[in-house]
Nucleic acid binder design. Structure first.
Lengths: 149, 149
DNA sequence: TATTTATTGTTGCACAAGCAGATACCACGC
DNA sequence: GCGTGGTATCTGCTTGTGCAACAATAAATA
């Protein structure tokens, strides 16, 4: 075992920790968001991402990258949300291949109803992860990434 | 905006960063493992977890927790791997509800063939993430979690 | 201008996931 | 022993996902 092999193993372990924490949080979010707002985590992510945009427009492909989803999955995801009246498609004039999406009032409303659930579940999930020795260090590291004070 | 609201927002941002990095890495692993070893990330995770058990077997439910998968998904995942001859089910004597899984020689072999691909892809994905400003801090933090030297 | 090449988004298909219900088994109280 | 409640796994059904092929538009090039 040389230094090189150690680096490989450290990366692998970091990835396992990341995946484990991600899985834990996502599972809990999935359940609570589904129960409280009939939204999957990805659906919430889309609404949240749209609400966070300046000008409130995003193209399909941006959405696909933001959610780490395939193009086809994104199409259908937007279909579902559009069918529920939470967002609308807007053909964009300058590039007629492109399609913008925009939250409707109903979408904004649902997002704001869901946000407390999301935030509370996230807090609870992180607290649970704190109690798991392998995950605790990563939980501690997270808030330090963007702490600005 | 008080201190409390800040904490909520910091957690949310940490979660978005975590999810984004996870999605990026998983996508790349998915592609490369599928191409090189016909394994999905979850399948690789199972084989890896079993190999790491060092003589000990794993029960279905442990596997479900290790992969953040539902019980039914775990059943079918094990079915797939068993059908390919990569692992075997072992009824355990003391608790006849329980089922242990164990890697076959063929499973060990495939895992060892896949590991270099996995490790290389992971390194590449992390390097790419390094170039994305929002992700870089988390990438830097990861190896510090388990560094032991 | 005409023709190729690249990009953006949608659809057909096969497969993996979760939920709810079923089955087999353990543990405890009577 | 018998029944009750809880646990471990499997199956039927519905839904979401990725890949590959496609249509429409833009950009590049001759």
């Amino acid at each position: 075992m040389g230094i090189k092999d150690d680096a490989v193993e450290v990366r692998a372990q970091g990835w396992r920790t990341l995946a484990a924490l991600h899985g834990l949080i996502e599972s809990e979010l999935e359940r609570s968001l589904q129960a409280e707002a009939q939204l999957s985590v990805v659906e919430y992510t889309v609404l949240d991402a749209l609400s966070r945009q300046d000008g409130w427009h995003m193209r399909m492909q941006q959405l696909a990258r933001a959610t780490a989803l395939s193009a086809s999955a994104t199409t259908r995801l937007v279909n579902r949300l559009e069918d529920r009246g939470l967002l609308t498609r807007i053909l964009c004039a300058d590039d007629r291949r492109g399609i913008y999406t925009e939250l409707t009032a109903s979408g904004i409303k649902l997002l704001e109803e869901a946000r407390p659930t999301h935030d509370a579940t996230l807090e609870r999930a992180l607290a649970e992860a704190q109690d798991i020795p392998e995950l605790a260090p990563l939980v501690d590291a997270l808030p330090k990434l963007h702490a600005h004070a």
